[in-house]
């Protein structure tokens, strides 16, 4: 079967300037030459294949979130190019970029701060549908909202409530409903389950996995939790200091890690001992 590449990046670079002073004690990021320049993403090339879940793992400060933002064109790269479904998008103007925005959606880490506290759930989920004028009548739009609620296992009576009336897990479901409202081709989850309790985390992970099966979603899943990644990912990219250390199918990363850093990461995870 021919693999269809939905998103690819080649030789992406992004660096940030930090303050002039600074002791740089224990600071992460590679400092080359210019001391104030931190290379957050340093010559990264990767491909996301249609239908897969690609996980980006690494410690905080390794550049995984910056990379996601670059890929979504939320920030512009210094060098390198990004291709979405074969077309280069790295230098498109904001206006030409707009059709692509619809195809890439994001679920954030903190569901409390990514939902507008003054909007009802109905309006939050409707917003992308209104912005894109997907449905010509309100009735059709309302049907779609109900369908979305159903997909993320929320009850109908949620619609007229505000975000603060929900628990963390429910808020994350609302965030997911909003992200999938436009049937995106690519869903980027930036630490979407990190702030949740274990039981709720398991519920959301199950939801993401079943949505992927139902809708054929392609997912770029950013996480620092290797156990979570092992559950959800098809392929894993391990990042350190803005560079990719290892990129391999998930099964291989866990059974036969190739890079020293991957081995170190895996050995650091506190595991539940095996009992027969």
């Amino acid at each position: 079967m021919e693999k269809e590449i939905i998103l690819s990046a080649s030789h992406l670079k992004k660096s940030f300037r930090t303050g002039k002073k600074g002791l740089h004690i224990g600071k992460k990021g590679s400092h080359t030459g210019d001391n104030n320049l931190v290379h957050a993403v340093d010559d990264v090339s990767l491909e996301v294949i249609k239908g897969e879940t690609l996980a980006l793992v690494g410690e905080s400060g390794c550049g995984k979130s910056t990379l996601a933002r670059l890929l979504m064109r939320m920030i512009n790269s210094d060098e390198g190019s990004i291709y979405f479904e074969g077309k280069e998008i790295s230098h498109l103007s904001e206006r030409k970029m707009r059709p692509y925005r619809k195809k890439m959606q994001m679920v954030f880490q903190d569901p409390a701060s990514s939902l507008d506290p003054r909007m009802k759930i109905r309006d939050i989920i409707a917003e992308p549908l209104i912005a894109w004028n997907v449905y010509d009548s309100k009735a059709k739009r309302d049907d779609r909202i109900l369908e979305l609620l159903n997909l993320v296992d929320l009850r109908e009576d949620c619609l007229d409530r505000y975000p603060h009336q929900f628990s963390g897990g429910q808020r994350q479901r609302i965030g997911i409903a909003r992200a999938i409202a436009l049937n995106p081709d690519l869903l980027i989850c930036d630490e979407s389950v990190s702030a949740l309790d274990v039981c709720v985390q398991a519920q959301i992970l199950n939801l993401l996995k079943s949505l992927k099966q139902q809708m054929g979603l392609t997912c770029l899943f950013i996480s620092h939790d290797l156990a979570v990644v092992s559950f959800i990912a098809d392929r894993v990219v391990v990042m350190k200091n803005g560079r990719i250390c290892e990129m391999a199918p998930a099964s291989q990363i866990y059974s036969n890690p190739g890079h020293e850093y991957t081995k170190y990461l895996l050995s650091s995870v506190p595991r539940i001992k095996e009992y027969d």
């Binding site: 996995k209 156990a227 092992s230």
Partner: peptide, 12 residues
């Protein structure tokens, strides 16, 4: 409900 490395159930 804890995902474990190396052991991949279909759903948790």
């Amino acid at each position: 409900s804890i995902p474990r490395m190396g052991d991949n159930p279909e759903f948790l």
